[in-house]
């Protein structure tokens, strides 16, 4: 981090979470079947993933639960259930449905340079400034900002973890570049500067519970789908190109969006810990953009040119899922209702 330009902030003391995430509530037959296996019960029926809404609540929660075993796990679920064959078979069917939908919704393309260049222009004007960060910058209300942070907590409380899985799957030069970005995300050796820690500091200052997995029941499938896509690409070596594309999208687009959120938070009178999280990302991601392009994408394509189409797929699929979530949030807020499945105490209901 830079000092002097942004004065040191004394964040609230970090909470020590000894408890693991609780098991969420099922949202349909797929998630009910996965949750049954997690509890060590026979699934009530053999669910059919092929008929499910690939981006819907049920399939996305089922996938989230499968993936969580590879992260921190759930309270009361044995660690070794991560490798339960019944669960892995279910996960495979869910992934097949999700991935097939994304492949159908994202046109195939292998021009990485064009896909990256699209991200390096800043659209301005009435037709462009329509995203969530623009809304929160100019006119969003505090309850909407808090909902946004609750949605984002599904990823940021495990920030950089899905991308860490790709490390051993990369050739040497790209690996060195990617790890230097990950090192920064993980606080460059300082647990207090871990981005997940900065995010939790912000949540507490905004009056939101910051427990790992706390908001899973409250967020819709569209929120879970964004993070599930990262986990899917992180866990499958065959999708390593897509994982790098997803990571590039985040790092290349985060600086301007973070700047808008900083300004929105100042307008709303948010405290220093809240502002610090996005403030840190303005400068950090301006650097990460350069490293991703020069230190990861360029050497990866030089060594594995066949990954080009998957890199573009990762960029575009992550963008597609991000746009879906953004639209869902803005539509709900425009109608004066919550974008969450269960509203926060200070916001409107459904």
């Amino acid at each position: 981090m830079t000092t002097v330009s942004s004065p040191a902030v004394s964040s609230p003391a970090p909470t020590v979470h000894t408890g693991l995430a609780p098991l969420p509530e099922p949202r349909g037959p797929l998630s009910a079947a996965v949750l049954a296996v997690l509890r060590g019960e026979e699934p009530p029926q053999r669910p059919d993933a092929a008929a499910a809404d690939p981006y819907g609540d049920d399939l996305q929660l089922a996938l989230h639960c499968c993936y969580e075993l590879h992260y921190r796990g759930f309270a009361g679920v044995p660690d070794d259930r991560e490798w339960d064959l019944q669960l892995l078979a279910l996960r495979g069917a869910l992934e097949e449905r999700f991935l097939a939908a994304l492949r159908a919704d994202v046109p195939p393309d292998d021009d990485v340079t064009a896909a990256v260049d699209e991200l390096l222009v800043e659209p301005v004007g009435p037709g462009a400034e329509t995203g969530v960060s623009h809304h929160l910058h100019r006119r969003g209300e505090l309850w909407q900002l808090r909902e946004y942070v609750a949605h984002r907590s599904i990823y940021h409380l495990k920030e950089a973890d899905p991308q860490a899985w790709v490390i051993p799957r990369l050739p040497r030069a790209a690996k060195a570049g990617l790890v230097s970005v990950e090192h920064d995300e993980y606080g460059a050796g300082d647990p207090a500067r871990l981005h997940a820690t900065l995010f939790a500091d912000m949540m507490r200052e905004l009056g939101l519970p910051d427990g790992y997995g706390h908001h899973v029941d409250a967020v819709p499938g569209a929120t879970l789908a964004e993070v599930n896509f990262m986990s899917l690409c992180g866990l499958r070596r065959s999708l390593r190109g897509a994982l790098v594309g997803q990571f590039a999208l985040v790092e290349l687009t985060s600086s301007p969006g973070s700047e808008r959120l900083v300004r929105g938070m100042r307008r709303l009178g948010c405290g220093p810990a809240a502002i610090r999280f996005y403030d840190e990302h303005v400068e950090a991601d301006a650097v990460h953009e350069q490293i991703l392009r020069r230190g990861v994408l360029d050497p990866l394509l030089a060594e594995e040119p066949a990954l080009a189409a998957d890199i573009v797929f990762g960029i575009r699929a992550a963008g597609f899922l991000g746009d879906r979530l953004g639209t869902a949030m803005l539509d709900a807020w425009a109608a004066g209702r919550t974008s969450l499945r269960t509203p926060l105490p200070d916001g409107p209901g459904r």
Binding site: T2, S5, L120, V121, E122, P123, V124, G125, P126, G127, A128, S255, P256, E259, V282, E283, D285, A286, V287, E289
Partner: peptide, 14 residues
């Protein structure tokens, strides 16, 4: 420090 403000700005009216 860079904050990516060098990026080309493309105006979209609609």
């Amino acid at each position: 420090f860079c904050d990516t403000s060098h990026r080309t700005r493309v105006r979209e009216e609609n």
